[in-house]
Each structure stands twice: as C-alpha cells, then as structure tokens.
C-alpha cells in the first residue's frame, strides 16, 4: 500500500474544504482499502467522512424515500420501510457481498464500487480503466464474467453493484454537494458507460460528495424483487441479475420497472421489456414475450455468449416470481 495522509473530518464543510485540496473520501472502505492494498488505488490523502450526519433513512414529502449516503448496506437492508415498500432494494442488498462487508460498506460507496474485472485489479495487465491508453486485456483475454451490453473497444468491464441495478429500475436520484452547491443526478445518468474514456465511471465532479440516494414513490399497489444468478449460491457477483417492480390494477399491469445487472458496463435499464409489459395481463406468455427482448443489442465476447440467453431467462423468471404471486 502506498503511503497516504489521513484526515478525519467532523463536518460536511470540512470534508468539502479538504477535498478541494485533493484527496479521496473514505466511508466503509471495503472497496477502496482492498484496491489500495493492490495499489490499483493510490490516494495521496484519505478524507474520513464517517463522522458526518448522513445516516438517516427518511420518507420524502413526495412519498418516496431518502437514504443517507453513510447508511450501511446492513442497516438499509434491515430498514422496515425499505423491506415493506422496496423489497427489490433489500433483496439486492442482502444478495450482495457478505454479512461482514454489509456491516461496513455504505450506500453511497456501493454506487461508486469499482469493477471486479481481474485485469483491472492486476497491475501487470493492460487496462484502460486503470491506466488509460494501455489497452484492454479482457477483450481478447478470459472474459466469461464480462459485459455484453454497453461495452466499447476500450472496456468491457461490468458494473458490480446489485443495489445500483435496483436503483436504476426505480429511477433513483443521487444527491450531491460540492463547494458550489448541491445538485441531483438520476443514477442512470450518474453511472457512465466506458466509451473512449473508461477511467471515467461516474458524473461525480472534483471535490463533490454523495450525500444521499433518493428513491421516488412507485405507483401502488406494487410488487417487486431482485433475482441474482451466479456461480455460487451466495457471496458471489452476478453473472446476470434482474430487478423487477410491477404495479397491477384490475388485473392489468399499469407500470413496470425492469433493470439487469452482471451483463452491462452500467446497470442496464430494460425499457423495451417494460413497454411490452404495460397494459398486459400477467401470464407465462407475457413474461416470455417481454423477456425476449432483454438482451437486444448484446455484443457477446468469446467466453460470455451464454449471458445472452441467461439474461433473457433471468428476466423472465423474475417477472414470473414478481408478477404471479
């Protein structure tokens, strides 16, 4: 691990002031400390924000929910309001990482979690994300776990977060603050496809801090859930996952939110699937028809062509689970 200066701040103002002088925020640290040990991350200064007041989960006036950036994954997953109203969030969280990691890792940090591409973590490998311009060892290397959607010539790494998939399905909004004020960015705009600059993974500006994640209200009544398919039954990243929320009234689907994980360079919202669902009557035929287009646009690599069918089947299965109680 490279040497760094450690600074613990007691207020948001102090955090932003410190960040303007350069440095990285650290919250749970589960991703950052791991990557610092590998020397993939080499921050000159760590700004410890764990004393800041961003640990609340509150109902918004608009019927949604605001989750403080420092709420741990464990605390968010255990929150009664989240479990009742947004099971796809609590399920995505509890299917992530391990109980130990969820006790440390935070909601804000989870959204910024870095890819598990093994070439990204291997300093001897070419990786445009870690070392811009060095190439992509994954494209012609072993790429079974890599993305089939949203890739570029420069990068095919998946976004690893399950939570972010649920948040993308829910049209969640990231609350940000910097010295020049606060702003809100939709998570689907916040997380950026690699394009020609895979080192840029999100819309966070210099010295800007995530303060909360806001989840808007859903049409009611709604059922939702998260399905994760992986090589191990537990404690493993997704090969494919599906976040689904369906609002049904008078036997007809009035609103649908569907997103996929483990397959995209960012959480992959499936608008085409949603359009096939809205106005339909829940049935095995509808789930199959809607899921057929889940992998549209996919560009499989040498070792991950199986993900095309896996994605369709994962979406279909989760539509059935959520849609046919």
């Amino acid at each position: 691990m490279q040497p760094f200066d450690y600074l613990k701040v007691g207020s948001q103002a102090a955090a932003l002031e410190a960040a303007r002088r350069g440095g990285r925020f650290i919250a749970g640290g589960t991703c950052l400390v791991d990557l610092m040990r590998e020397e993939v991350e080499r921050p000159a200064t760590l700004i410890d924000i764990s004393a800041l007041q961003m640990r609340e989960i509150v109902a918004t006036g608009r019927g949604g929910l605001r989750i403080g950036a420092l709420v741990t994954m464990a605390a968010a997953a255990a929150d009664p309001h989240i479990r009742t109203s947004y099971p796809l969030i609590s399920e995505a969280l509890e299917l992530s990482a391990s109980a130990q990691l969820r006790n440390m890792a935070t909601i804000g940090g989870n959204v910024l979690q870095r890819t598990r591409c093994t070439y990204f973590r291997d300093l001897s490998a070419a990786c445009n994300k870690r070392a811009p311009g060095s190439g992509c060892a994954a494209r012609e290397g072993y790429n079974r776990s890599h993305a089939i959607l949203g890739t570029s010539a420069e990068c095919v790494a998946t976004h690893p977060s399950d939570l972010a998939v649920a948040l993308a399905a829910l049209d969640a909004v990231i609350h940000l603050v910097s010295g020049s004020g606060s702003r809100r960015v939709a998570i689907t705009d916040f997380l950026i496809r690699p394009g020609s600059a895979p080192e840029r993974e999100h819309a966070l500006r210099d010295a800007e801090l995530i303060t909360a994640v806001e989840v808007p209200a859903l049409p009611r009544p709604v059922r939702s859930g998260y399905l994760k398919v992986r090589d191990r039954q537990s404690y493993e990243f997704a090969l494919a996952s599906a976040a689904v929320a369906l609002a049904t009234r008078d036997g007809v689907i009035r609103a649908a939110r569907v997103a996929a994980g483990g397959v995209g360079t960012v959480p992959w919202r499936l608008h085409a699937v949603e359009q096939r669902l809205v106005g339909g009557w829940p049935s095995a035929q509808l789930w199959r028809f809607a899921a057929e287009c889940a992998a549209d646009g996919a560009e499989p690599l040498r070792h991950n062509a199986f993900k095309v069918d896996l994605l369709r089947r994962t979406v279909e299965r989760q539509l059935r689970i959520v849609g046919q109680p």
Binding site: Y6, K8, I26, G29, T30, D34, S50, A99, Q100, M104
Partner: peptide, 22 residues
C-alpha cells in the same frame, strides 16, 4: 475469506479491510 472476522462496536466485520487509524 472471513478468517479475520472480529466484532467492532458489536458488529462483525473483516479486520483486514479496517484501517486501524480509523
């Protein structure tokens, strides 16, 4: 791997990913 699991303020965590200075 979880071999380093300890309790910090009552919660189980991985000691390897905790910087002691924090």
């Amino acid at each position: 791997c979880g071999a380093c699991t300890v309790l910090v303020d009552g919660a189980r965590v991985n000691a390897c990913l905790n910087l002691a200075i924090r």
